[in-house]
Design a protein around this nucleic acid. Structure first.
Length: 173
DNA sequence: TAGGCCATCTGGTCCT
DNA sequence: AGGACCAGATGGCCTA
């Protein structure tokens, strides 16, 4: 998946495009995992302090580990879903040029900054009323926050930065 | 082949 | 106590 990491994309596409192969894929993955695990278990056996395994039988430990792994996998999938959702709301990026995680975060940060500066520039005190009913209140809060986050950077600089990044990501595809 | 990116496993630590 | 979170390690896949 990465535009850049097509390996992962390919792995995922296999699941999406051929559901009947899922079981085989899963078996394959589990086989790989168990091989890795055997290797790691051997490697880490010396490092394990007895206090970590005494209360548990090998079977129990193994079971608990597998459960933790599953939860961790699920957690990472959720995280990746969130990344995907974020990618989808960043404009001007061609779908086939999938952003990496670091690109996504960087671009999103600058996009937010540029939006904020645009809002401030265009609003001229016409922002919707804040909770307390004063529009100038909400504007000044936004401005305050913007100042905190952006420091001395000018809004045009933000826009420039964002569009430059968009441009470079496009070229990199 | 090296380097980038990713998924997964793992053990430690934090939180509820 | 058990789950969530985190960071390091490892290996696979891809591109230049």
């Amino acid at each position: 998946m990465k535009a850049k990491s097509k390996g992962a994309k390919r792995r995922r596409e296999v699941h999406e495009d051929a559901p009947h192969q899922e079981a085989a894929q899963k078996r394959d993955e589990l086989l790989k995992c168990s091989r890795r695990q055997e290797k790691r278990n051997k490697a880490s056996a010396k490092k394990l302090c007895p206090v970590h395994w005494l209360p548990w039988s090998n079977k129990d430990r193994r079971l608990r580990r597998l459960e933790s792994n599953e939860r961790e996998r699920q957690r990472m999938h959720n995280l990746n879903n969130a990344f995907q959702a974020l990618r989808e709301v960043i404009p001007h990026v061609r779908a086939e040029n999938k952003l990496s995680k670091i690109e996504t975060l960087t671009l999103a940060k600058n996009y937010i900054k540029s939006l904020t500066s645009t809002i401030l520039r265009m609003s001229n005190g016409h922002l919707p009323p804040a909770v307390d009913g004063s529009s100038s209140g909400s504007r000044s809060k936004l401005y305050e926050h913007y100042q905190q986050q952006c420091g001395e950077e000018e809004s045009t600089e933000q826009l420039q930065k964002y569009s430059t990044q968009i441009h470079s990501f496009r070229q990199g595809s």
